[in-house]
Design a protein around this nucleic acid. Structure first.
Lengths: 110, 110
DNA sequence: TTATAGTGACACCTTTTGGTTACATGAGAT
DNA sequence: ATCTCATGTAACCAAAAGGTGTCACTATAA
Protein backbone atom coordinates (compact mmCIF):
# COMPACT_ATOMS: atom_id res chain seq x y z
CA UNK A 1 0.00 0.00 0.00
CA UNK A 2 1.29 3.36 -0.99
CA UNK A 3 0.78 6.66 0.82
CA UNK A 4 1.18 9.99 -0.93
CA UNK A 5 3.69 12.49 0.46
CA UNK A 6 0.76 14.75 1.25
CA UNK A 7 -0.98 12.16 3.39
CA UNK A 8 2.27 11.30 5.10
CA UNK A 9 2.61 14.99 5.85
CA UNK A 10 -0.89 14.95 7.31
CA UNK A 11 -0.07 12.16 9.73
CA UNK A 12 3.19 13.81 10.63
CA UNK A 13 1.37 17.07 11.27
CA UNK A 14 -1.01 15.40 13.71
CA UNK A 15 1.89 13.92 15.62
CA UNK A 16 2.44 17.19 17.45
CA UNK A 17 0.31 18.51 20.36
CA UNK A 18 0.59 22.14 19.27
CA UNK A 19 -0.81 21.36 15.84
CA UNK A 20 -3.55 19.24 17.37
CA UNK A 21 -4.56 22.24 19.45
CA UNK A 22 -4.47 24.53 16.45
CA UNK A 23 -6.87 22.25 14.59
CA UNK A 24 -9.16 22.18 17.60
CA UNK A 25 -9.15 25.97 17.66
CA UNK A 26 -9.95 26.18 13.97
CA UNK A 27 -12.81 23.74 14.40
CA UNK A 28 -14.60 26.54 16.26
CA UNK A 29 -13.97 29.30 13.73
CA UNK A 30 -11.45 30.39 11.17
CA UNK A 31 -8.67 32.54 12.57
CA UNK A 32 -5.88 34.79 11.36
CA UNK A 33 -2.30 33.87 12.16
CA UNK A 34 -2.14 36.51 14.87
CA UNK A 35 -5.34 35.19 16.45
CA UNK A 36 -3.97 31.68 16.53
CA UNK A 37 -0.63 32.69 17.95
CA UNK A 38 -2.35 34.69 20.68
CA UNK A 39 -3.54 31.36 22.06
CA UNK A 40 -0.01 30.10 22.57
CA UNK A 41 3.09 31.11 24.47
CA UNK A 42 5.03 30.53 21.30
CA UNK A 43 6.19 33.26 18.94
CA UNK A 44 4.12 34.12 15.87
CA UNK A 45 6.90 32.80 13.66
CA UNK A 46 6.77 29.48 15.45
CA UNK A 47 3.01 29.22 15.05
CA UNK A 48 3.35 30.11 11.39
CA UNK A 49 5.69 27.18 10.88
CA UNK A 50 3.10 24.85 12.37
CA UNK A 51 0.44 26.34 10.11
CA UNK A 52 2.69 25.71 7.12
CA UNK A 53 2.99 22.06 8.10
CA UNK A 54 -0.76 21.74 8.54
CA UNK A 55 -1.25 23.27 5.12
CA UNK A 56 1.26 20.86 3.60
CA UNK A 57 -0.87 17.99 4.89
CA UNK A 58 -4.00 19.59 3.43
CA UNK A 59 -5.43 19.88 6.92
CA UNK A 60 -6.03 23.60 6.60
CA UNK A 61 -6.47 26.16 3.86
CA UNK A 62 -5.42 29.79 3.91
CA UNK A 63 -7.60 32.57 2.59
CA UNK A 64 -6.17 36.06 2.13
CA UNK A 65 -8.35 38.98 3.17
CA UNK A 66 -6.70 42.37 3.18
CA UNK A 67 -3.46 42.05 5.05
CA UNK A 68 -4.73 39.08 7.04
CA UNK A 69 -4.58 35.36 6.28
CA UNK A 70 -7.48 33.36 7.57
CA UNK A 71 -6.91 29.69 8.30
CA UNK A 72 -9.71 27.15 7.94
CA UNK A 73 -9.96 23.41 8.26
CA UNK A 74 -9.58 21.51 5.01
CA UNK A 75 -11.45 18.24 4.78
CA UNK A 76 -9.09 16.85 2.15
CA UNK A 77 -6.29 15.88 4.52
CA UNK A 78 -8.69 14.35 7.01
CA UNK A 79 -10.37 12.26 4.34
CA UNK A 80 -7.11 10.92 3.02
CA UNK A 81 -6.03 9.79 6.47
CA UNK A 82 -9.36 8.14 7.14
CA UNK A 83 -9.15 6.46 3.76
CA UNK A 84 -5.82 4.93 4.54
CA UNK A 85 -6.89 3.74 7.97
CA UNK A 86 -9.86 2.02 6.35
CA UNK A 87 -7.40 -0.08 4.37
CA UNK A 88 -6.82 -2.07 7.54
CA UNK A 89 -10.47 -2.73 8.31
CA UNK A 90 -10.51 -6.13 6.59
CA UNK A 91 -7.70 -7.20 8.87
CA UNK A 92 -9.79 -6.77 11.99
CA UNK A 93 -12.71 -8.67 10.50
CA UNK A 94 -10.76 -11.49 8.91
CA UNK A 95 -11.05 -15.07 9.99
CA UNK A 96 -7.52 -14.78 11.25
CA UNK A 97 -8.92 -12.43 13.83
CA UNK A 98 -10.51 -15.44 15.51
CA UNK A 99 -7.16 -17.13 15.78
CA UNK A 100 -5.59 -13.99 17.08
CA UNK A 101 -8.36 -13.58 19.62
CA UNK A 102 -7.71 -17.07 20.87
CA UNK A 103 -4.05 -16.31 21.24
CA UNK A 104 -4.78 -12.94 22.77
CA UNK A 105 -3.98 -14.08 26.30
CA UNK A 106 -0.45 -14.87 25.25
CA UNK A 107 0.30 -11.35 24.18
CA UNK A 108 2.51 -9.23 26.32
CA UNK A 109 0.38 -6.66 28.08
CA UNK A 110 2.72 -3.76 27.63
CA UNK B 1 -9.84 18.58 22.63
CA UNK B 2 -7.13 16.55 24.23
CA UNK B 3 -5.07 13.79 22.67
CA UNK B 4 -3.27 11.19 24.75
CA UNK B 5 0.49 10.80 24.35
CA UNK B 6 -0.18 7.33 23.00
CA UNK B 7 -2.43 8.58 20.23
CA UNK B 8 0.00 11.35 19.43
CA UNK B 9 2.64 8.64 19.14
CA UNK B 10 0.37 6.75 16.75
CA UNK B 11 0.03 9.72 14.41
CA UNK B 12 3.72 10.40 14.62
CA UNK B 13 4.43 6.77 13.80
CA UNK B 14 2.33 6.93 10.66
CA UNK B 15 4.18 10.01 9.49
CA UNK B 16 7.01 7.88 8.19
CA UNK B 17 7.01 5.82 4.96
CA UNK B 18 9.06 2.98 6.40
CA UNK B 19 6.60 2.47 9.22
CA UNK B 20 3.69 2.66 6.81
CA UNK B 21 5.28 -0.14 4.82
CA UNK B 22 5.86 -2.21 7.93
CA UNK B 23 2.18 -1.97 8.83
CA UNK B 24 1.25 -2.99 5.32
CA UNK B 25 3.51 -6.03 5.62
CA UNK B 26 2.00 -7.01 8.95
CA UNK B 27 -1.48 -6.72 7.49
CA UNK B 28 -0.65 -9.84 5.49
CA UNK B 29 0.74 -11.92 8.34
CA UNK B 30 2.57 -11.55 11.61
CA UNK B 31 6.33 -11.46 11.27
CA UNK B 32 9.42 -11.72 13.42
CA UNK B 33 11.81 -8.80 13.55
CA UNK B 34 14.26 -10.58 11.28
CA UNK B 35 11.51 -11.27 8.75
CA UNK B 36 10.49 -7.65 8.70
CA UNK B 37 14.02 -6.35 8.37
CA UNK B 38 14.66 -8.72 5.48
CA UNK B 39 12.18 -6.62 3.52
CA UNK B 40 14.27 -3.47 3.89
CA UNK B 41 17.74 -2.30 3.03
CA UNK B 42 18.00 -0.96 6.53
CA UNK B 43 19.82 -2.71 9.38
CA UNK B 44 17.87 -4.87 11.79
CA UNK B 45 18.51 -2.38 14.58
CA UNK B 46 17.03 0.38 12.46
CA UNK B 47 13.91 -1.66 11.79
CA UNK B 48 13.66 -2.51 15.47
CA UNK B 49 13.55 1.20 16.30
CA UNK B 50 10.63 1.64 13.94
CA UNK B 51 8.87 -1.31 15.53
CA UNK B 52 9.36 0.25 18.94
CA UNK B 53 7.72 3.46 17.74
CA UNK B 54 4.81 1.51 16.25
CA UNK B 55 4.38 -0.32 19.54
CA UNK B 56 4.44 2.94 21.46
CA UNK B 57 1.50 4.13 19.37
CA UNK B 58 -0.34 0.85 20.03
CA UNK B 59 -0.29 0.08 16.32
CA UNK B 60 1.36 -3.30 16.83
CA UNK B 61 1.77 -5.84 19.58
CA UNK B 62 4.72 -8.12 20.19
CA UNK B 63 4.34 -11.74 21.12
CA UNK B 64 7.36 -13.71 22.32
CA UNK B 65 7.74 -17.25 21.03
CA UNK B 66 10.96 -18.97 21.87
CA UNK B 67 13.75 -16.62 20.96
CA UNK B 68 11.64 -14.84 18.36
CA UNK B 69 9.33 -11.86 18.73
CA UNK B 70 6.32 -11.86 16.48
CA UNK B 71 4.79 -8.52 15.56
CA UNK B 72 1.07 -8.19 14.86
CA UNK B 73 -1.24 -5.31 14.12
CA UNK B 74 -3.00 -3.87 17.15
CA UNK B 75 -6.39 -2.34 16.53
CA UNK B 76 -6.17 -0.09 19.58
CA UNK B 77 -3.96 2.57 18.01
CA UNK B 78 -5.98 2.61 14.82
CA UNK B 79 -9.23 3.04 16.70
CA UNK B 80 -7.93 5.91 18.75
CA UNK B 81 -6.81 7.77 15.66
CA UNK B 82 -10.12 7.19 13.93
CA UNK B 83 -11.89 8.35 17.05
CA UNK B 84 -10.05 11.62 17.09
CA UNK B 85 -10.60 12.25 13.41
CA UNK B 86 -14.32 11.74 13.96
CA UNK B 87 -14.25 14.68 16.35
CA UNK B 88 -14.09 16.92 13.30
CA UNK B 89 -17.02 15.38 11.46
CA UNK B 90 -19.54 17.92 12.78
CA UNK B 91 -17.40 20.65 11.29
CA UNK B 92 -17.88 19.40 7.76
CA UNK B 93 -21.62 19.07 8.20
CA UNK B 94 -22.25 22.34 10.00
CA UNK B 95 -24.27 25.16 8.55
CA UNK B 96 -21.05 27.12 8.39
CA UNK B 97 -20.01 24.65 5.75
CA UNK B 98 -22.51 26.29 3.44
CA UNK B 99 -20.87 29.66 3.96
CA UNK B 100 -17.48 28.18 3.45
CA UNK B 101 -18.61 26.49 0.27
CA UNK B 102 -19.85 29.82 -1.02
CA UNK B 103 -16.51 31.40 -0.29
CA UNK B 104 -14.67 28.44 -1.70
CA UNK B 105 -13.75 30.21 -4.92
CA UNK B 106 -11.79 32.78 -2.94
CA UNK B 107 -9.50 30.22 -1.44
CA UNK B 108 -5.99 30.00 -2.68
CA UNK B 109 -5.64 26.90 -4.77
CA UNK B 110 -2.32 25.78 -3.41
C1' DT C 1 2.83 60.87 2.85
C1' DT C 2 3.73 58.63 7.07
C1' DA C 3 2.88 55.42 10.58
C1' DT C 4 1.26 50.95 11.99
C1' DA C 5 -0.16 46.18 12.12
C1' DG C 6 -0.11 41.53 9.92
C1' DT C 7 2.52 38.78 7.46
C1' DG C 8 6.60 36.12 4.83
C1' DA C 9 11.24 34.82 4.69
C1' DC C 10 15.74 34.29 6.47
C1' DA C 11 19.57 32.99 9.65
C1' DC C 12 20.43 30.78 13.68
C1' DC C 13 20.32 27.51 17.67
C1' DT C 14 18.84 23.31 20.27
C1' DT C 15 16.47 18.98 20.48
C1' DT C 16 14.64 15.00 18.34
C1' DT C 17 14.70 11.52 14.71
C1' DG C 18 16.55 8.09 11.62
C1' DG C 19 20.19 5.61 10.86
C1' DT C 20 24.65 3.19 11.94
C1' DT C 21 28.16 -0.22 14.50
C1' DA C 22 29.50 -2.88 18.42
C1' DC C 23 28.52 -5.62 22.20
C1' DA C 24 25.55 -8.32 25.73
C1' DT C 25 21.80 -11.59 26.56
C1' DG C 26 18.98 -15.81 26.17
C1' DA C 27 16.93 -19.83 24.01
C1' DG C 28 17.79 -23.95 20.97
C1' DA C 29 20.71 -27.20 18.91
C1' DT C 30 24.96 -30.05 19.12
C1' DA D 1 28.80 -27.14 28.35
C1' DT D 2 29.23 -24.88 23.92
C1' DC D 3 27.94 -22.86 19.82
C1' DT D 4 24.64 -20.39 17.17
C1' DC D 5 21.05 -17.34 16.00
C1' DA D 6 17.36 -13.84 17.11
C1' DT D 7 17.10 -10.22 19.77
C1' DG D 8 17.99 -6.03 23.20
C1' DT D 9 20.78 -2.06 24.39
C1' DA D 10 24.14 1.56 24.26
C1' DA D 11 27.01 5.01 21.96
C1' DC D 12 27.38 7.61 18.21
C1' DC D 13 26.42 10.60 13.99
C1' DA D 14 23.99 13.32 10.36
C1' DA D 15 19.79 15.34 9.19
C1' DA D 16 15.36 17.16 10.22
C1' DA D 17 12.15 19.39 13.41
C1' DG D 18 10.88 22.92 16.78
C1' DG D 19 11.87 27.05 18.41
C1' DT D 20 13.88 31.94 18.43
C1' DG D 21 14.76 37.00 16.70
C1' DT D 22 15.36 40.21 12.79
C1' DC D 23 14.26 42.34 8.58
C1' DA D 24 11.50 43.41 4.39
C1' DC D 25 6.96 43.87 2.40
C1' DT D 26 2.07 45.21 2.02
C1' DA D 27 -2.37 46.99 3.24
C1' DT D 28 -4.98 49.90 6.24
C1' DA D 29 -5.31 54.19 9.11
C1' DA D 30 -4.10 58.83 10.23
Amino acid sequence: MHLSPTTTAAFKALGDPTRQQILTLLSKREMSIAEVSDQFEMSRTGVKKHLNLLEKGRLIRVRAEGRERYNTLNREGFSQMEGWLKFFDPFWDSKLAALKAAAEKDFNDE
